[in-house]
């Protein structure tokens, strides 16, 4: 069972130690007040005022996500549509277990600062729990050392959580090569030699997407891919059994967890999307009737 720790609960705990927030606030305020800016004109010299539109949108977005998360926490039922690609993940691992073959998972080939990689690693955590449970071998080749460290942590944690810490092999997650096509060649070789029964690609992919997916297809593996890069989607759609498109990648880990707290975030995101669609429609109408300059200027952020 997941312990309910988030930043709000941490802040609650910290409130018990009353001095700590006061000290933090004092340090922050003194740093701000000591800066040159406060000696000069406050306002435009400190804030980048034209960016305030972003601040407003950020607040609306954050409020929506937090509100839905709160409702989810309170037990309100939230409908989330089925994502076939995510549902297929467990089936794919099950198939690999039956066949006695490994599962190959690639958390993209971007570095850890890329949010797609984080999404990939989050899904890896869920997949590793299932492979640990069934004791199915897992192969996770990575391209960047930072991704190696983060993925190792996640996989090790998943095995420990399932009570299978002894089955965890330190080389499950392995650094393969920093160069894109050296990485691809190695992984393709791995697919042809070790013949994984399931290949899961989740994260940021580039020109190697089709090279990987076609080789996996030739090796007869069931393939599930997910990326937020529109330019690589056609290749995955052509060569994989299931593909998560764009935001589905970010939703996948929450969806897999089935925890209401995480699903609330998805609903908040959907609400903002509706607002954006309305904003686009209003903009289109205003610009069509040539009265939309003020409106487009609102969104012209430097």
């Amino acid at each position: 069972m997941r312990k309910d720790i988030d930043i709000f609960s941490i802040v609650k705990k910290l409130q018990a130690i009353r001095t700590l927030p006061v000290i933090l606030l004092t340090i922050t305020m003194s740093l701000i007040l000591n800066s040159q800016a406060f000696a000069q004109d406050f306002g435009d010299s400190v804030f980048i005022l034209p960016r305030m539109t972003v601040l407003i949108l950020l607040l609306v977005f954050s409020s929506a996500v937090l509100l839905y998360t709160k409702w989810a926490k309170a037990g309100k039922k939230l409908f989330i549509r089925k994502i076939a690609g995510v549902d297929a993940v467990e089936d794919a691992v099950g198939r690999a277990t039956e066949m006695g073959k490994p599962v190959l998972f690639i958390p993209g080939i971007a570095d850890v600062e890329d949010i797609e990689t984080i999404a990939g690693i989050a899904i890896l955590g869920r997949v590793a729990r299932v492979t640990a449970q069934y004791e199915t071998p897992l192969l996770v080749p990575v391209r960047y050392p930072m991704v190696l460290a983060a993925s190792q942590e996640v996989v090790e944690g998943a095995y420990a959580e399932m009570g299978k810490a002894d089955s965890y092999d330190k080389d499950t997650v392995r650094y393969v090569a920093g160069e894109q096509f050296a990485f691809t060649a190695t992984v393709n070789g791995m697919m042809m030699r070790e013949r994984p029964a399931a290949n899961i690609y989740m994260g940021g992919f580039f020109a190697e997407s089709l090279l990987l997916a076609e080789t996996g297809n030739a090796a007869g593996a069931i393939q599930i891919a997910g990326t937020a890069r529109p330019e690589q989607l056609p290749f995955f759609v052509a060569a994989c059994d299931f593909t998560l498109m764009g935001e589905e990648l970010y939703a996948a880990s929450s969806y897999l967890s089935k925890e209401p707290l995480l699903l609330g975030g998805l609903k908040g995101q959907d609400f903002v999307k509706v607002l954006i669609i309305i904003a686009i429609l209003i903009g289109t109408l205003l610009v069509t009737f040539d009265i939309g300059d003020w409106y487009t200027n609102l969104f012209d952020v430097p």
Partner: peptide, 10 residues
């Protein structure tokens, strides 16, 4: 737009 919102939400 969808992916950007997904990234922001994540």
């Amino acid at each position: 737009i969808g992916a950007a919102l997904g990234a922001a939400s994540m």
